[in-house]
Design a protein around this nucleic acid. Structure first.
Lengths: 245, 245
DNA sequence: CGAATAATGTGTTTATTTTACACATAAAAT
DNA sequence: ATTTTATGTGTAAAATAAACACATTATTCG
């Protein structure tokens, strides 16, 4: 064990010594990558960018960037989103950090991955970089580096997370019908749900507010529109909890 | 948006250019910290080390180290565990990455946090560093830097994770009684459980094997001993899943 | 303008899961 | 042998989830 005394939290040393150690030993770059989910035409999508590397010109990539020394990880993720989508205040959550030695051909790059959920309608208003594309998640093939693996991880994360936390609403317009909400869940979970039970379940969770308006321009009986009420959610959090021992 | 063209995945550039970018821009150190849970005397514990920094001599700290440029994050975590506990093959899982700018006085250090669960009985056989201590989680006060915050996050993680994945067994000896298993869950979840329902639940999950032995040296009727069967778990995974829509 | 179309809105019955709860049994200690 | 202590088991009630059908409302088309 004595031969391990060269590391960060062993052997007595001064703060100053620690500082120089921190600044000299590490040659690892740190990036943030964002898996940005959207929902459009009843399909779950992910926002990708055409790789800016000549060698990988026809490959798409997640949106990411190196973390700046003076910014928090979350701040970095928000910055990337802001730069790329023009939007603030998106739902954002850290999911996992990927750091295999060979994952990036540019050297050792460890990437902290965030998931974000955006309302595509709203988003479409902004003019965007032409290399950005919303890809259907079902037809995703190869991505840059290990980005496909990262995406797969995040998609599984989303499927689980959406059942224990009301983050799905971030993918919808402020006003939505229950049908739209159900379509969203069906797209994320990739299975059909019973319409009556779905409705019952959401009402019992008590996070929706009937805003007294109906859908417009639908070729059939319009449904009522609802909005998500975060305060109601806070009061009814326990209903979103899973199994208990 | 044009003024954002200096980052990792924008603007067309060569792989070579990317390499030098990766190697020059980042001045961020990367560490791994391990929250090592143990279970002893019916109490949940965490393995801490007395800080090796003069300034923080009376403060305890998680076990961590800088990540080496040539090692994967998981490898790094395993190395730390091996060095500090002498054990291989411990349960290990990445939980979260903490990277606030001011979290470490030695400079910008982003830390990837892993949780590990060890069998304290087994562990005690090894001779350990004298600065290591098993602390009861209930009486944890201040820890080094943001380690208390990190610990709290991991404890919440454990409480949730133990209900959806059979990782708790890593905290027990190979052979255990149902009472010991229940004590473990009660310690982790911090609440009393009904003995009959607990037993029923675990049997219905179908991951335990009766090994045909009884407890020894207990001052009362001995309980049967069981072991955890990972293959059975693989077959019955779905029973560990939470709510479904 | 009426009929056909298409999706909304609502309740009940059944099955499953979870909770609450009590007594006989086996070993150890006295 | 009696007392102590914790094990081992089952059932009834309550809550939750699943399966399922029909009347309603707006639109579209003839």
């Amino acid at each position: 064990m004595a031969n391990t005394k060269t590391n960060l939290s062993n052997s007595v040393k001064t703060l100053k010594g620690l500082q120089s150690e921190v600044q000299s030993i590490n040659r690892i770059a740190l990036s943030v990558d964002c898996v940005i989910f959207g929902f459009d035409e009843n399909k779950l999508k992910v926002l990708l960018i055409r790789s800016d590397l000549k060698k990988y010109q026809n490959t798409f990539s997640l949106l990411g960037d190196l973390v700046k020394p003076e910014e928090d990880l979350d701040t970095s993720a928000y910055r990337i989103l802001k730069q790329r989508t023009g939007l603030n205040d998106l739902y954002l959550e850290q999911v996992h950090t990927f750091g295999e030695v060979g994952r990036h051909p540019g050297g050792r790059v460890v990437t902290v991955v965030y998931c974000s959920l955006v309302n595509v309608q709203h988003h479409r208003l902004k003019t965007l970089d032409h290399d950005l594309h919303w890809h259907e998640i079902d037809s995703l093939k190869e991505l840059l580096f290990d980005h496909k693996k990262i995406f797969d991880h995040c998609y599984v994360w989303l499927q689980k997370r959406v059942q224990e936390h009301p983050l799905g609403f971030s993918l919808l317009p402020n006003k939505f019908s229950l049908r739209e909400l159900q379509n969203l869940y069906e797209a994320i979970l990739h299975k059909k749900l019973d319409r009556r039970n779905f409705r019952k379940k959401f009402f019992s969770m008590d996070v929706l507010v009937d805003i007294g308006e109906d859908e417009q321009n639908v070729p059939h009986r319009p449904g009522k529109l609802y909005k998500f009420d975060y305060e109601k959610y806070e009061k009814n959090k326990k209903k979103w909890q899973g199994i208990d021992f």
